[in-house]
Amino acid sequence: MAAILTIDKLRAGYGPIDALHDVSLTVEAGEIVAMIGANGAGKTSTLMSVSGVLKARAGSIRFQGQDIAKLPAHQIVKLGLAQSPEGRKIFPRLTVLENLQMGAFTRNDAPGIAADIEKAFAMFPILKERRGQAGGLLSGGQQQMLAIARALMARPKLLMLDEPSLGLAPQIVVQIFDVIKDLNKAGMSILLVEQNARMALRVAHRGYVLETGRVTMSDAADKLLVDPRVRAAYLGE
């Protein structure tokens, strides 16, 4: 399989401080890769660097062979790289439908966009019911669904999800993870960031452990699930 995303020795940070010191990671086409780590480890910073929102200070980020580390965020989406960010970041005063339309901002194939909106509604029927409502009025779970559906509207080749289970009721988390599995079965490559390490490693093919801005472990997901260090630090056993 070919790598769709290759991060090599990425360094990035805020002000004088580096949040990422040396992050290297690969996502193969068709894979779900989980990135787990404690709060503040640098998971969100990694995704934001890939999306071009946080500028890489050193290292390279290659997406389908092209170095995107220096591209502005709005050009990266166009290449087929979308993100459902931590905390959902729904546009609160745009309607559900408008939120979805914003996800397709880089596209101009109106019929394709309309078809994809119907697909999103089929995936999450509650969004269809609430299509005219302001995004800010949705419940947390509905906002998460909207955030994923909105990211999919870009027709990405790689979907990045930042803590999709954060703050959601257990049965909603199950529903979200089912969607992640289904998307992957349909061929989507996914980079999944989670603090819920157990759930993430169960759906993922491979996983990376991030600690204070460095990758400290990487292995097949089922191996990480039984690794004593992972079990002690992230699975609460």
Binding site: S51, G52, V53, A73, H74, Q75, I76, V77, K78, A82, Q83, P85, K89, I90, F91, P92, R93, L94, E98, Q101, M102, G103, F105, T106, R150, A151, A154
Partner: peptide
């Protein structure tokens, strides 16, 4: 719409392209 989106959440707006 991009204007409203940027006003409401600039980071999310950038993630939309």
């Amino acid at each position: 719409k991009a204007m409203r989106a940027t006003a409401q959440n600039p980071t999310a707006a950038r993630l939309m392209g």
